[in-house]
Design a binder for these strands. Structure first.
Lengths: 154, 154
DNA sequence: TCTATAATGTTATATTATTACATAACCGCA
DNA sequence: TGCGGTTATGTAATAATATAACATTATAGA
């Protein structure tokens, strides 16, 4: 994720996908929602609610409920995730296909990578079933160093 | 965990263990620290910082820093864990042996069970190594229904 | 155009947590 | 025993995160 990539493309893709999903569901992808999603996607890190608030500026007389409602909408529709351990929000890198996802959070560059499926989900499922626990929602956030930052620090 | 168990024993054991750990480390298990740990262990749910604050009462003129500092101490020494998805704190059910633990949180009875080791930890390790990610700390919190609440709702 | 609904604005406040500095308790040692 | 450094706690102020309740505006469909 580090280094040069045409990040404008990431943003554009996220917006296009969001647009499509809202269309399919008969939901309105309003200016405000688009703007907040763009801000969240400004980089591959996580965004804090009050920073989004500040950066809305302009036409948007942004008060907290404005941004929290928008975040709720985006979360409900799988377009962003909340990172509980950071009280921050990241764009979902593959809406609609994000069951059992988890997050690798680099404490050096602050980038957050969303991961899905894999053997981790399977291990969680079988653990829960052994315990006779019926999971509704899983928070799995792993903080550490990403490969690029590990390389860079050598 | 539900139903009848001599919970006083849980509290007592937690306090005794904490005492021993502090002794071994040359740390002071002060009245305040003991009192906060007791309050956290008052049940098998999680405790909110400001509730602890209220319940300290008495001799302790409790202001927020008092309780947050105490929680920090208890966390640093593995005696309590923070549940990020709840902004709440639980007693550690096996201090010193709590690497790679995770939490099953019942949304019906609010009890939190701490689980350790197992294949989940292994799956996480191998996933991280595949991604060349070096984990420092993992937040794994699973919210759902525990076996007793599932039974009870049938 | 009218109307119902959804979205956003606005004010106030709740909840969670930290900073910074003052005081007190404790521990080792002269 | 008392001195002095360190650790722990007290206190005031405020920062950071989030929600409740109600007013207004925009939108889509009849």
């Amino acid at each position: 994720m580090h280094g040069n990539h045409q990040h404008a493309h990431c943003i554009e893709e996220a917006i296009t996908t969001a647009n499509r999903i809202c269309d399919e569901r008969g939901l309105r992808f309003t200016d405000l929602r688009r703007r907040v999603l763009e801000l969240i996607w400004e980089n591959h890190g996580s965004a804090k609610a009050y920073d989004l608030l500040e950066n809305l500026g302009g036409d948007y007389s942004a008060k907290p409920p404005t941004v929290y409602r928008t975040l709720d909408f985006l979360q409900e529709n799988g377009l962003v995730h909340k990172i509980n351990s950071l009280n921050a929000y990241v764009g979902c890198s593959h809406p609609l296909k994000h069951k059992d996802c988890f997050f690798l959070i680099c404490s050096a560059c602050n980038e957050v990578e969303e991961c899905c499926g894999s053997s981790v989900a399977e291990a969680l499922r079988s653990m829960a079933s052994e315990q006779n626990f019926r999971p509704d929602h899983t928070t799995l956030e792993i903080e550490g160093r990403c490969v690029d930052c590990l390389k860079a620090s050598q």
